[in-house]
Design a binder for these strands. Structure first.
Lengths: 132, 132
DNA sequence: TCGCACACGTTATAGCATAACGCAATTGAT
DNA sequence: ATCAATTGCGTTATGCTATAACGTGTGCGA
């Protein structure tokens, strides 16, 4: 699932996400792209759908927002489960991977014969700077 | 944070969730309680807010739904991080705890001096029965 | 050149969540 | 007893998130 060349809309959406210093909601992205001709949510959602598929963007389920993947170039899908720490004050997001966590969760699913498709790990709280 | 006696609305909402065989959205709960006098979403959301606080109900972030805690009686908040496996076919939910996972995530947050408030772990996929 | 796949645009609608107001009941300190 | 604070409740309105359904255009291989 490597990323083919992005279409115009996909590139615009990706660019907005990459330049942002935190996660953005689909509607925030829409507003930022109105000057580029975006008029409707679907234009954003359709681009996001592909970007998620290509693994260059992540969706943060707990805050209904999207971030550019922290590993430019690489294919994030190959790093195992992606985990996020989200600061509720400054909304900065840290992305990380922990193979031991992956392993434990996989053990559990294997034991239950549960076929995992997509796993979400999101830690909400305060980053070092904001907790001070 | 032990659960005091529930108010009428809280008890109604909790009852619906407990009798359900899967997670329910707030609006589904609302519909099930119209015969009991519920008219507006806020009645549901306010009850849910308390039930979440008491730890007798969990919110599934990835599907915007709510389930009764699988540990009746006990206080779920004391079990560490709660993880969920959600079947996307039959929508059955399995709740579990893994202290090793908790430990690894706590290690990470401690290393980053990130103050975790609420952690979400949700595995979506197919349960054994549905994967067959 | 036909058919198919895909990206795109638009309008409308569905689904999820909370703001802001006011009222009633409870509690507990003075 | 009474006042103030807290909590739950009801209602209306609104805002945010996401998708359905329709149609258009373009590129490309059979």
């Amino acid at each position: 699932m490597n990323a083919p060349l992005l279409t115009k809309n996909q590139a615009l959406v990706f660019d907005v996400l990459e330049k942002a210093d935190g996660p953005l909601s689909a509607y925030t992205i829409l507003d930022k792209l109105r000057d580029h001709g975006f008029r409707a949510p679907l234009q954003v959602y359709r681009a996001l759908e592909k970007l998620l598929e290509y693994g260059v963007v992540h969706r943060l389920e707990s805050i209904n927002s999207f971030v550019a993947c922290a590993h430019p170039g690489e294919n994030c899908h190959s790093h195992g489960i992606v985990a996020f720490a989200i600061c509720e004050s400054c909304s900065q997001v840290m992305e990380f991977h922990d193979h031991e966590v992956d392993h434990r969760l996989m053990d559990w699913t294997r034991g239950k014969k549960f076929k995992a498709e997509k796993t979400t790990i999101e830690i909400r709280g305060l980053c070092e700077a904001c907790a001070a």
